[in-house]
Write a protein that binds this DNA or RNA. Structure first.
Lengths: 140, 140
DNA sequence: ATTCTAGTTTACGTTTACGTCAACGTCAAG
DNA sequence: CTTGACGTTGACGTAAACGTAAACTAGAAT
């Protein structure tokens, strides 16, 4: 193990490569997310300094990606977590957007359930076919 | 209503624009899917003729897209529905792929459940904030 | 005969989400 | 002091999933 360099993790912050490695993305990806305003790391001079909050946001971003949302959509969703001060009009807009997202996700859940049912059926069918051909179920 | 042109829907087939309109995609999209071998419509001369089977496949394709899968991944999933004759080796490969997909979908389901819970929490929070400001819950 | 509609192929343009250099700064170690 | 690891900002490249325009054909309608 190499001794950790002084500034890699200071108190509650992360360097770009540290955070990148933890989430299996490249530094380039994190810079890109900052460019698209999905992340806003602080700066120590010129170098980015990521906080726990940034880490949490990144987690949400990657989850959004796994669900097939575009970065633009993910940005919208992230904004839903920054509620607090807005005016009534703004709050209502945010609420509508949130409900929209909920609707999309519910439909997505149904799609998944259907697909899972079909895939499981097919796998079972294949397993039977294999069994007929004399291949026991655990030899996969 | 214009009288249906003779060849638009004959027996159990669809024209390209007919099918495109039904699923709210463009003909270009259907041709593209054929180019990528996700669809294999028959031909009457040069013009494509889509069957009920093609329609069903298209349905699956679009569901896959809603779930964020790439066309390449969707093609793999579609192949999982074409089981029947393969050799043992081929069947086992198909089974492994199917189980992989099932794993991905299960993880995706969990992501959705987490996200839904958080979004619902946020919406409830906003609703409370609005209520405090004198906005009743149904005025959204 | 001409026009309209629907279809075809070919090919280049576009957006998204990064990858991949290039060229440079900086700081601690050898 | 130079090397090496890590950081920075452009700028250009790329794969996916189509959009869009060009140029053409075939059948139906006026």
């Amino acid at each position: 193990m190499r001794a950790g360099h002084c500034f890699q993790v200071m108190g509650t912050t992360y360097s770009i490569s540290h955070l990148a490695e933890e989430f299996a993305v490249t530094p380039r990806t994190l810079r890109f997310y900052e460019d698209r305003e999905l992340l806003r790391p602080a700066r120590r001079g010129q170098t980015r300094v990521f906080s726990h909050g940034d880490r949490a946001r990144l987690k949400l971003i990657l989850r959004g990606k796994r669900l097939g949302f575009s970065l633009a959509e993910i940005k919208e969703m992230l904004d839903l977590y920054n509620l607090g001060d807005g005016q009534v009009e703004q709050l209502m807009l945010t609420l509508r957007k949130g409900r929209e997202r909920i609707g999309v996700l519910q439909r997505q859940r149904n799609d998944i359930d259907s697909t899972l049912a079909e895939l499981r059926g097919n796998c079972a069918q294949i397993t039977r076919l294999l069994a007929e051909k004399g291949v026991p179920a655990d030899e996969v």
